[in-house]
């Protein structure tokens, strides 16, 4: 009888440990529906693995059929769909999965790329400094920087197309109005797009 009680105690203690262990709990930010806004903070310094950076399914970079009146070389963003298209000849486009502005931070318009930057620096937004006053107000660009490997600055706005160290945010509405791509994709786009490129930002595709 004593042995059975001891066995029960061991199992109960093990179960209690599992329940307490913070790492064993599911991450509430792990949203599976790409159309749902994701509540996630920047993770300065976090360096994702190659597996994490490899997108799968519709958000993986791919050539798609794309009918548009825009000239080849134009960037077209469909915010609602979380896609960025680089228009190609013959009704084709290279499609990239992106993260977009969260509710209240989305926008639309026709602009131009005015500047390009490799490994851009990062400045935490004021609300983040308020929550985490110890954060550096400036973090030099490099691996682990939330701005990722490349940035394309959109003229007449405070917004950019940039990389990210949080590949899990692709397909979600998480940013303050910028468009984020995984580092491999933003590097690919950066190499294809010169300064002066036209960018058309739409909420949804034209029907």
């Amino acid at each position: 009888m004593k042995i059975i009680k001891l066995q029960s105690l061991c199992l109960a203690a093990a179960a209690a440990w599992l329940a307490w262990c913070p790492a064993a709990k599911a991450d509430p930010a792990d949203a599976s529906d790409p159309q749902v806004d994701m509540q996630i903070d920047d993770q300065p310094g976090y360096q994702p693995s190659a597996e994490e950076e490899q997108l799968a399914g519709p958000f993986e970079r791919q050539i798609v059929f794309f009918r548009t009146t825009e000239a080849p070389g134009t960037i077209v963003v469909h915010t609602a769909d979380r896609y960025l298209y680089l228009v190609q000849p013959n009704n084709r486009a290279i499609r990239y999965g992106i993260g977009v502005g969260r509710d209240g931070f989305q926008w639309a318009g026709i602009r131009k790329i005015i500047q390009k930057q490799e490994w851009p620096d990062w400045r935490p937004p004021p609300e983040m400094i308020q929550r985490q006053p110890y954060l550096p107000r400036f973090m030099a660009g490099g691996p682990g920087n939330p701005m990722g490997a490349r940035a394309l600055y959109i003229g007449g706005t405070v917004y950019r197309i940039h990389g990210t160290n949080q590949p899990q945010t692709i397909g979600h509405a998480v940013s303050s109005g910028c468009f984020r791509l995984v580092n491999a994709d933003v590097t690919d786009l950066y190499d294809r797009v010169p300064v002066g490129t036209k960018i058309v930002v739409k909420q949804a595709a034209d029907l």
Partner: peptide, 16 residues
């Protein structure tokens, strides 16, 4: 306050 990860960025970080 500013921060860097690579020594090559130190001077720029100090200015920032």
């Amino acid at each position: 306050v500013a921060a860097y990860h690579q020594d090559s960025a130190r001077q720029r970080t100090e200015a920032e």
